[in-house]
Design a protein around this nucleic acid. Structure first.
Lengths: 179, 179
DNA sequence: TCCAACTTGATATGATATAACATACCAAAA
DNA sequence: TTTTGGTATGTTATATCATATCAAGTTGGA
């Protein structure tokens, strides 16, 4: 069960996963405290679940997991938590997958730019300012005032495109198989 | 019912709408003939409906309209037609809206870059090669091999951002109201 | 304490999309 | 002409994703 999906640009091996979950939760606490908002147990738990997966997770999968610890829970519960976390920039929604993923840099507001592997569902968050700027410029040239950018690139991650065979790619099609 | 949503970068006024539907159908015929594929009556009709709307249209709205002329029709009917048209690059899917729109330049293969107005649902298709290239470069730098790009920019079109009040913006929130 | 705002629970439903199987249609081969 | 194979469409059912609505509980301040 090698976690070969990462958030910062694809790294060859694994990383300290527990550490990055912790960081995300800490950042969330900071963000909420600074903004006078409540990181309730539910919200905290959902954020932790998102980060535990560490790849795009679907709302109903989160819901199933929530039920394991919390008994009955209905769709609005998970969507409300996700909406809160999204509003605060703590998670992103991947439109092309109808799925959610933890934000790699929650302290700065941004729309997110994602590289999504077709084979293994690994996702990297780019957040390249040059891309954002160029798009903004071209939009402005057309008289368009930019509010948000959805940038989702599909393709093959380093592991799955063949260069790196060290960590069993392909076999792990995660978005649908984390029963 | 002013059609202030256009496909080529936002134009201030209206355009010859009948003409652009015709063009789209002609292009579709060319494409299909060249590729040995059949532009069946259904596919043609769906493409025409998409272009008639000339803004993002949802599958079930198309389905309703299809039923007006064709009697009973089930979801797969519309989704199959849309899939065909998408495969041939004749329509694009706007992921962030779960909606479909005619492709402005169907003769060249491309992923599409969209400017989507939050107020009036007007959509412009950018297709700027520089943006595509930059994204590809940055992805490659991260070891990622690009297959497809989803680029959807939300914001305000020239009309709705205040500069141009000539053609009644805002009042026409189309995506959900073309009953 | 009491109120107002916020949060969560719970039920129902809306909206989007596909699986699975049957039938129609068309053209080339037997 | 019949058979056959491929493509397209019809049909039913269901999976998947998301929100409206209202009730109940919680929190923190006046």
């Amino acid at each position: 069960m090698a976690a070969n999906s990462v958030l910062a640009p694809f790294r060859s091996g694994r990383h300290d996963h527990g550490h990055c979950i912790e960081d995300a939760l800490k950042a969330a606490e900071t963000v909420c405290r600074d903004r006078g908002l409540r990181l309730t147990e539910l919200r905290r738990q959902v954020l932790e679940m998102v980060w535990t997966e560490h790849r795009p997770v679907r709302a109903y999968d989160l819901l199933d997991r929530l039920r394991e610890t919390r008994g009955r829970a209905a769709p609005p519960t998970i969507y409300r938590a996700l909406d809160f976390l999204r509003d605060q920039g703590l998670v992103h929604r991947i439109e092309s997958l109808n799925a959610y993923i933890g934000c790699g840099s929650p302290l700065s507001q941004h729309s997110g730019q994602f590289l999504i592997c077709r084979e293994c569902s690994a996702v990297a968050e780019l957040d390249d300012p040059a891309i954002e700027k160029l798009i903004k410029k071209r939009a402005n040239d057309a008289g368009f005032q930019v509010v948000g950018q959805t940038i989702e690139i599909t393709g093959l991650c380093p592991q799955c495109s063949g260069g790196d065979e060290s960590s069993s790619p392909g076999s792990e099609n995660a978005l649908s198989e984390h029963a």
